[in-house]
Write a protein that binds this DNA or RNA. Structure first.
Lengths: 189, 189
DNA sequence: GGCAAAGCGGGGCGCACGTTCCGTATAGTA
DNA sequence: TACTATACGGAACGTGCGCCCCGCTTTGCC
């Protein structure tokens, strides 16, 4: 995934890299991309220098995380497309994505382009993601479970919006709010 | 509006205050709350010190702007409630709010709590806003134009989400995306 | 066990930004 | 016009954070 292999890492190096990655994942998910590197290093029990040895820049760190996360999502989408009824598969994935928004602040910020430009940095993954979603969408539309006029881009935008709703929350009922959007995606009366 | 009167400002002070306020409004709307004070001062053609004399803190500056904006919105909501058919009034206001999201990045960030906590800082305005929206919503629900089970808080959350969609955009068609949400707000088939 | 090579930690540098200070300029008044 | 309260501008300060450097430790091989 991270491409460059070079030479196998020393045991302690590998351990530290993993600790940093795991910690960063949790921290970014919980508090967003704004958390300082020093803080992540501290929580991972390593020095800041160690973080920078493994990830040349802060951006590289959360890229590694987001790429991983997106790959997961793409796989899930493909599985759903292969194993589940069209409408069901589409809406299951939709829920999955919006739920991710409630849980993973870092991912939301990344998807919304707050921290970096996904398409510029990992066009392949962005592409794979869109393709997987296209398949789900077109199957669902073919089965009459989703209005025929929405595009993949529309769906992605709706997902980002729903993630914002989840995260923003307020006094509203998440389930009902999402229900409204899902209802809107169904074919007209 | 800003309450404290004290003693009338000197002519040049009044002029500068206005310049700062106007500039800040434009800059925050276009680029969000992250723009440095020095930059706003520069564009307004004043020194940073001048900004701080009129607004003791950066937060105070965009509070002044957001309060103003929210008051406008509340007035509009009341007018719509008084002059327009229930369903029409509700959806007109909904469009207005989401459009505001496309135009005014600062407002969105403020509403989403990025820059500060609205409810803590201007509970009166927040309250007025919710009340005005409640009136629109209940009228629309009474007329059968909106599903009966959504609450004001739900609507507010949906608005924030739609603003995010507008701003995030991507390759999607804004009109269609909003259409989906509006459709979801209508009573079930 | 000894010895490079690889890796570690955390102090420090540079920069950006919010905020303050103060010497200078200007409006308003007599 | 002279005088003073008021306001101005921008240099300067403190803080937070990304990132680099370098003396010390650990690992893995002989």
């Amino acid at each position: 995934m991270t491409g460059t292999v070079g030479r196998p890492l020393r045991a302690d190096a590998r351990r530290n890299r993993d600790k940093v990655l795991r910690t960063a994942y949790e921290v970014f998910a919980a508090e967003g991309l704004g958390v300082p590197i020093d803080e992540i290093a501290r929580r991972a029990g390593v020095g800041a220098g160690t973080v920078y040895r493994h990830f040349p820049t802060k951006e590289a760190l959360y890229q590694a995380i987001v790429v991983d996360r997106v790959e997961h999502l793409v796989n899930t989408a493909r599985e759903l497309a292969a194993t589940t009824a069209p409408g069901q598969a589409f809406f299951d994935f939709f829920d999955l994505m919006t739920t991710a928004g409630a849980t993973d602040k870092g991912l939301v910020e990344a998807l919304a382009g707050e921290g970096f430009d996904i398409e510029a940095v990992m066009p392949r993954h962005e592409q794979a993601f869109m393709d997987a979603m296209r398949e789900l969408l077109e199957r669902a539309q073919g089965a009459g479970a989703v209005r025929a006029d929405v595009t993949v881009a529309d769906v992605k935008t709706l997902m980002v919006g729903c993630q914002a709703m989840q995260r923003y929350g307020g006094d509203s009922t998440p389930a009902r709010v999402l229900e409204v959007v899902r209802e809107g995606l169904r074919p007209g009366r």
